[in-house]
Design a protein around this nucleic acid. Sequence first.
DNA 1: TGGACCATGTACCAATTGGTACACTCCCGC
DNA 2: GCGGGAGTGTACCAATTGGTACATGGTCCA
Lengths: 204, 204
Amino acid sequence: MTHTDAAGEQDRAQDQDQDQDRRARLVDAAVDHVTEHGIADLSLRRLGAAIGVSHRMLIHYFGSKEQLLAEIVRTSERRQRALLSRLHEESGLAPTEVARLLWRQLTDPRLAGQERLFFEICGYALRGRPEAVRVLDGLVSDWLEPLAAAETAAGADPASARARARLGLATVRGLLLDLLATGDRAGVDAAMEEFLRLYYGPDR
Amino acid sequence: MTHTDAAGEQDRAQDQDQDQDRRARLVDAAVDHVTEHGIADLSLRRLGAAIGVSHRMLIHYFGSKEQLLAEIVRTSERRQRALLSRLHEESGLAPTEVARLLWRQLTDPRLAGQERLFFEICGYALRGRPEAVRVLDGLVSDWLEPLAAAETAAGADPASARARARLGLATVRGLLLDLLATGDRAGVDAAMEEFLRLYYGPDR
DNA sequence: TGGACCATGTACCAATTGGTACACTCCCGC
DNA sequence: GCGGGAGTGTACCAATTGGTACATGGTCCA
């Protein structure tokens, strides 16, 4: 025997870690894959082939395609939220600068796949696909609270703060869709600048 | 013989008309169906069963599923544009009133299916689905020109008119997505009012 | 050493898919 | 009346799907 009991337990824990780890790595690879190729015609076989496991393993780790998709959506959501938290750390800047920073992050070409996936998942969820529907809950509210808080901090009254936050979120998303569809970076940026002028006033 | 030559020709023309008519009615029924059920897991068989023909007939009239989908997308696009033209006829009203009118039309619950389909098709197109990709071309530009024209007519200089038009379009779409996701009509309407205040000034 | 367990792969299944072959029916021109 | 062509339905096809059964191989504990 090469293990004491303690070491055995550690090993078991490690195994479980590895298991969890493998699972997590699978999800991560899966998200990467759908970020690039979409979820529209995702099949367990193709996904498995792409990330180096048999489709049997995907079933084994996730139970069913639907559960895997749910996990993919959840993880992708988490990545989206990471953007938000990055924004949060930048407190201290003028709101308009924070907005510009967020905008620049969101429109980073490297994130295009993620943004496309976002709209694709929205489309799925709007159709009632069970594995995506829960995204709809957080789609607005998750972003609304921090944005509204920022607005309140900037001096807006609560009611107007919520409306302004909602407006800002919608505008960003609309322009993001425009950018993805047209690729006209300059045109969309100009519209964004126009919005910032209207939103924060011409002088800031 | 029950037909003169002229009547025969008329008949043939009528047949062709009927053919075209049947085809058109099939497309229409198909659009109605996908408006309600989405295109994500559309199958010729289910569609056929839903609109009362065999999937064989769909192939016969449209050649392939892809071509049928292309036609569906095109027709759905045409319906979208009908909204725009309805708006166009309302000239003479103050811009802010036109905007409110358009907004009320777009958010009519009876159009929810159509709007959902819009976002769903966007998702497809953003993934490069060939039958939907051409939507992307008109996605912004089709709406931009009339909107920018209205802005110019209202006294904006050309450059700012384009940016403002683009911004308005994006905001409407973003808020529409918000509405579809949350169903929070009041909240979204408040955001829209906030936008109109910023966009047209508080006094109009 | 042996046995239990777990991860993994192979082979398979029934269902569904888009598309095709062929037969049938109905109507027009002769 | 009748031959032919167009519209339509039935039966079928190969491919792909998600999911399962079972064999295999390895690793740990007694």
